[in-house]
């Protein structure tokens, strides 16, 4: 939970003095669709990781990749980039 700042806490010009603060924002809650990676088809090439505009594909120790759903907005670029069609985009269901 981000601290609730008052107007007195605001920096001049609303500057954010520490770099990388966007990582605190859960952008994954915009998502309406999610990528699902089929390990049977995946050859660990890493193109999904390379193409993801939000750095939301995580490399795993075993060489495979998985989407980081805290940030993933479900844009589908990874599915387009995958040469083996190992990534499918599936609609989020209401819980």
């Amino acid at each position: 939970m981000v601290k609730q700042l008052t107007w007195i806490d605001m920096e001049v010009g609303n500057i954010v003095k520490e770099a990388g603060s966007a990582s605190f924002r859960r952008t994954g809650d915009w998502r309406t669709e999610r990528p699902i990676i089929d390990k049977e088809k995946c050859n660990k090439c890493g193109l999904c990781w390379l193409y993801c505009p939000d750095v939301a594909i995580r490399p795993l120790e075993n060489g495979y990749y998985e989407p980081d759903l805290y940030y993933c907005k479900g844009c589908g670029i990874c599915a387009k980039a995958c040469p083996r069609e190992a990534i499918t985009i599936s609609e989020e269901e209401e819980k």
């Binding site: 008052t6 107007w7 007195i8 605001m10 001049v12 609303n14 954010v16 603060s21």
Partner: peptide, 29 residues
């Protein structure tokens, strides 16, 4: 607060509803 690659910071971050009002009042004061 000059931009400087040696000490990165953000100018012009967006202001969602939970912070925009505070930003404008701080500016006005």
């Amino acid at each position: 607060f000059a931009l400087n690659p040696d000490k990165p910071m953000t100018h012009g971050a967006f202001g969602p509803p939970e912070i925009y009002s505070e930003a404008k009042i701080a500016q006005e004061v």
